[in-house]
C-alpha cells in the first residue's frame, strides 16, 4: 500500500534496492539521501492543493527512478531538486500533470550534475484543459568538473482546447565541455488523423479523444514498478479525465 509522504529526511541505505510508493496529500519538505550503490524507485502521486519540495542526493553509483504524477484537482507546485553528487549516479524522471478549469500546476525540476560520469534523463508530460495553466521549468546544471555527463530532457504536452496554456521552460547551464546533453519540447493537440482512424473503426469521437488522452498519459503509468499502485494512478487519471 502507498504511504503518506510527510516532511522529513530519509535514507536509502548503501546497496539497497527499494520501490517506494507515496501519496502526497499535503504540503511537505522531503529530503532523501540515496547511498552508494543503492537502487531505488520513488513513486509520488499528488493529492490536492499544495506546494512541496522534494530533494534527492545521489551518491556514488546509485540510481534513482522518480515518477511524479499530479492529476489532482486544484492548484499546486512541486519543486524537485536532484543532486548527482558522486560519479556513476543515474537519475531517471517521469512526470505527468493534468490541469483543468481555473487551476494552475507548476513542476520545477532542477537536476545538478556536480561531478563527472553521471547520467540523467527526464520526461515530463502535461495535459491542460479548459483555461488551465501548466508550467514545467526544467533546469539541467552541469558543473565545470562534471565531464562525460549525459543529460537528456523531454517535455511533451497536450492542449485539449484553445484556452488552455502550457509553458515549458528548458534551461541548460553547462560549464563542462565534454558532455552529451539534449532537450526538446512539444506542445500539441490531439491529432485529427488519429481520431478519424478510430472513428472509422466504430469508436465515437468523444471515446476516441478520451482514449487518445489516456494513451498520452499512460506512457508515464507504464513506468510505475508497483502494479497495485499503477492501478491506483491509472484510476486517478481516468477519473480526472472524465471530469474535464
Amino acid at each position: 500500500m502507498a504511504a503518506e509522504l510527510k516532511s522529513g529526511e530519509m535514507v536509502v541505505s548503501q546497496g539497497d534496492k527499494v520501490v517506494r510508493s507515496y501519496l502526497m496529500n499535503e504540503p511537505c519538505d522531503v529530503s532523501v539521501v540515496v547511498e552508494q550503490g543503492a537502487q531505488c524507485v520513488y513513486h509520488i502521486l499528488c493529492g490536492g492543493e499544495l506546494q512541496s519540495d522534494v530533494k534527492f542526493v545521489l551518491k556514488k553509483d546509485s540510481c534513482l527512478k522518480l515518477i511524479l504524477v499530479d492529476v489532482a484537482r486544484g492548484t499546486s507546485q512541486v519543486n524537485v531538486n536532484i543532486e548527482l553528487a558522486d560519479s556513476g549516479a543515474r537519475f531517471e524522471f517521469n512526470g505527468l500533470y493534468i490541469v483543468g478549469r481555473g487551476e494552475r500546476k507548476d513542476v520545477v525540476l532542477d537536476v545538478k550534475h556536480l561531478v563527472a560520469d553521471c547520467y540523467s534523463s527526464e520526461l515530463m508530460k502535461g495535459i491542460a484543459a479548459e483555461d488551465g495553466v501548466g508550467r514545467f521549468h526544467g533546469r539541467i546544471y552541469v558543473a565545470q568538473d562534471a565531464q562525460r555527463t549525459e543529460a537528456y530532457q523531454q517535455s511533451r504536452n497536450l492542449l485539449l482546447n484553445n484556452s488552455a496554456r502550457i509553458f515549458t521552460e528548458p534551461q541548460l547551464e553547462i560549464y563542462a565541455d565534454d558532455v552529451k546533453c539534449s532537450h526538446g519540447a512539444v506542445v500539441g493537440q490531439i491529432e485529427d488523423e488519429a481520431v478519424y482512424y478510430m472513428r472509422q473503426r466504430g469508436i465515437d469521437e468523444k471515446a476516441a479523444r478520451n482514449l487518445l488522452t489516456e494513451g498520452f498519459a499512460s506512457e508515464i503509468v507504464w513506468q510505475i514498478e508497483d502494479e497495485q499502485y499503477a492501478e491506483q494512478v491509472h484510476d486517478a487519471i481516468e477519473e480526472r479525465l472524465s471530469e474535464i
Binding site: Y197, M198, R201, G202, I203, D204, L211, L212, A217
Partner: peptide, 19 residues
C-alpha cells in the same frame, strides 16, 4: 495506417469490436 501512441492494439480493438 495511423500511429496511436499510448493506446494498445488490444484496448483499441476491444473498444471497436464492442462499440
Amino acid at each position: 495506417p495511423v500511429e496511436i501512441p499510448g493506446v494498445s492494439m488490444s484496448n483499441f480493438m476491444r473498444l471497436a469490436v464492442n462499440e
